[in-house]
């Protein structure tokens, strides 16, 4: 059995060289420069909310609109930020990540990688 049963066909491509190529490094940078900061941002924002709800009950109980308090508003804001990050990532991936990835993929598949 080969070390990697999932992909037996690598063509004549030198993956080490490929991974160090300028084109691939650019793709890697495009991907990481979005997902890493965004992941850190939503985790910090989520745990800030969790700590507020856990330890600052008086603050979260401040009424803002009728019976709607800060706790409910910040909770709903978690929903809004999740939807917004999702939409932002999709648009970024479609515009920036996908074209670069497709270009490299098509070139490699022409070289016989399966």
């Amino acid at each position: 059995m080969s070390a990697n049963p999932e992909h037996d066909v690598t063509g004549d491509v030198d993956f080490v060289k490929e991974s160090q190529s300028e084109e691939f490094q650019e793709l890697r940078k495009t991907h990481r420069s979005f997902v890493f900061p965004m992941a850190i941002f939503f985790l910090v924002w989520y745990f800030a909310y969790v700590l507020l709800a856990d330890y600052f009950h008086d603050f979260m109980s401040i009424k803002v609109w009728g019976n709607v308090n800060l706790g409910i508003l910040l909770g709903l804001l978690q929903f809004v930020s999740t939807f917004a990050i999702t939409a932002a990532y999709v648009s970024y991936a479609n515009k920036k990540i996908d074209p670069q990835a497709t270009r490299i993929r098509e070139r490699l598949e022409d070289q016989g990688v399966k």
Binding site: H7, V9, F15, E18, S19, F24, L27, R28, H31, A101, I104, R105, L108, E109, V113, K114
Partner: peptide, 10 residues
């Protein structure tokens, strides 16, 4: 693995 995971080749 890195090239495949990001480009989807193969």
């Amino acid at each position: 693995m890195e090239v495949r995971s990001l480009t989807g080749v193969g």
